[in-house]
Computed example of a mutant assay.
Amino acid sequence: MKKRFFTVAAIIAIASTIMFSSCIGSFGLSKKLLSWNQTLDNKFVNQIVFFALWIVPVYEVSILADVLVINSIEFWSGDNPIEAGIVKQVQGENGIYTVETLENGYRIENQEGQEMNLVYDKESNTWSVVANGNSAKLIKIEDGGNAIVYLPNGGEKSVQLSNEGVLAFRESIENSTYYAAK
């Protein structure tokens, strides 16, 4: 009986290493739970809630759900089902922005209430911006480490996705008449 148990355990261990190799995942549910706990006002309350969530096994269940289900979904589909709905405040050059993670991109709002969406189309591998009811393509990621950047004047520019390629693109835009006119 013991020999059979160890044989089955060894087979499961080997299968797990093959199935879950390079599949650590982002542990989105566990991180979201922990970040919620960190938003509580008082460090003593944080600590009490932390211990309570370990005793009740909320953290254990969230980690188990991440390991068995959510990280597997993220690995096979490329999408993390937990990421949608996360809202963060981000300090930018022109003030603080509210950034909400959506299923297909981001919603960004400035302090004046103006907002825009960055939308990702998985089929065409394209990012677009949507603001005031208008939509415009920004970039299309191509195979082989290249991208097509859609310029405001209607043109397109191929860019190599490397430090050198991005630097060359940036320099060409800074020297263009469009950028100078803006």
Rank of each mutant, 00 (worst) to 15 (best):
E109V: 12
D66G: 01
F51N: 14
N94E: 11
I70L: 11
Y106A: 06
F50V: 05
I63G: 03
N104L: 04
D79S: 02
S77K: 00
G78R: 03
I55Y: 08
N71G: 10
Q89M: 13
F75M: 00
I108G: 14
A52H: 08
S77A: 02
V58L: 12
L64F: 15
A52S: 15
S62N: 07
T98H: 00
E100V: 00
V56R: 09
V99L: 06
L68F: 09
D79N: 06
N71E: 10
L68I: 14
P81D: 08
F75V: 00
N94W: 00
N71P: 05
V69E: 03
Y97N: 10
I96N: 00
S72K: 03
E60R: 09
V67S: 11
E109I: 14
E109Y: 07
E93Q: 10
Q89E: 13
A65H: 05
S77V: 00
E83Q: 12
S77Q: 02
L64K: 10
V67Q: 10
L68H: 11
V49H: 03
F51D: 13
Y59H: 14
E74Y: 04
I96R: 00
G85R: 03
G78W: 01
G78I: 04
A52M: 13
V56K: 11
Y97E: 07
L68C: 15
I63K: 01
V61H: 05
I55E: 12
E100L: 02
S72A: 12
E60A: 14
E93S: 11
N80T: 04
L64E: 09
E109P: 01
W54T: 12
N94A: 12
I63P: 02
D66M: 06
I86Q: 09
L102F: 01
V90T: 08
Y106V: 12
Y59W: 15
E74D: 08
L102S: 01
V69H: 06
E93T: 09
Q89W: 11
I96A: 00
L53K: 09
I108F: 10
Y97S: 10
D66Y: 05
V99M: 04
I82H: 02
P57W: 15
P57T: 15
S77L: 02
Y59I: 09
L53W: 11
P81G: 12
Q89G: 03
V69M: 10
I70Q: 02
Y97K: 06
D79P: 00
A84T: 15
V61C: 06
T101D: 05
L102Y: 03
N80V: 01
Y59E: 04
F51R: 08
D66A: 01
E60W: 12
A84R: 13
G92Q: 12
N110T: 08
F51Y: 15
F51C: 07
R107A: 08
W76N: 00
S72M: 07
K88T: 12
P57H: 15
P81Q: 11
S62C: 10
V87H: 06
P57Y: 13
I86H: 11
E100M: 06
G92P: 08
Y59R: 07
V87D: 11
E93Y: 09
V99K: 05
W54V: 14
G78S: 05
I73A: 09
E60H: 09
V56L: 14
D79W: 02
I82R: 01
F75S: 01
A65T: 10
L68S: 14
